[in-house]
Amino acid sequence: MGDPRVRRTQAALQSTLIDLVQDRELSRISVADVAERAGVSRSTFYDHYRDVHELAEAACTAMIDDLIEAIPDPGTCDGAHAAADSLLAFFAHLDEHAGLYRGVLGPQGSARVVDHVRRRATVAAYVGARRAATGHEAPTDYTAPVPHDVPAAFTAGALIGVATDWLQHGCPSSPAEMAALTRPLLIALYREDGRGQA
């Protein structure tokens, strides 16, 4: 499980970065800024992360891991409501932390974070389709390997593409509007694929 002091320090540094990125671009935040605001020394910072970019990656992947069950599962029997709710939660989360996600998902961002989001979203879509096909409500193991699955990979890529475009344009539509625009596209994919009716 790890040392609780290490987890607390890492959580404090991640939380501090999330606060700082609300006021300025990620590229303009230094290690000294984070360390000072978090009340730790620079050497303590470097005990945990190489630089601000690695800290941003850790903060994003931790939040994505908490959020990932909200990735739409249109193949469930109550797929219309589940997809609407999960998409709203997804876009609301991105909107709340737009500065951070814009920094790591944008053109100068982190390939590691993009790949993490893509893999987690692919697993969520794959497991959702399997649940719809079998009716089995097994818990999701997001670390398990997933076979090549075109609709699941397409779903994950589409969500990342839409989210990144929205963030890069300054979130011009509300999370509710984004959910409403995205949901029919995902439902259509699942209907075309024959994985379930929403």
Rank of each mutant, 00 (worst) to 15 (best):
A111C: 04
R50G: 12
V117A: 12
D3Q: 13
P4I: 09
D165L: 06
R118S: 09
R183Q: 15
H53P: 03
L87T: 01
A180C: 04
D95C: 03
H136W: 12
A132I: 05
R7Y: 09
I18H: 04
R7S: 09
W166Q: 02
R183E: 11
R8A: 14
V52G: 04
A138C: 06
E54M: 10
L20C: 10
T182D: 04
G170C: 01
R119T: 14
I187L: 11
L100M: 15
L67P: 01
L186N: 03
E192Q: 13
G75V: 07
P4T: 11
A132D: 09
T134R: 04
A59W: 02
H148I: 11
T44L: 08
V146M: 14
D85F: 11
A80S: 12
R28K: 13
A198R: 05
G39H: 01
D33G: 08
A82Q: 13
T122N: 09
G170W: 03
T164D: 07
E177N: 08
A198H: 10
I160G: 05
V52M: 05
A59C: 09
R131W: 05
A83I: 02
C77D: 11
C171L: 08
Q10A: 12
R102Y: 00
L87A: 07
A188S: 12
R183G: 08
G194F: 00
T140N: 01
S41L: 00
Q10G: 07
A163S: 15
P74M: 03
R119A: 13
A80K: 08
H93N: 10
P74G: 04
A176W: 02
I187V: 15
D95K: 02
F90S: 00
G75D: 15
Q108K: 13
P74N: 01
F45M: 10
G99Y: 00
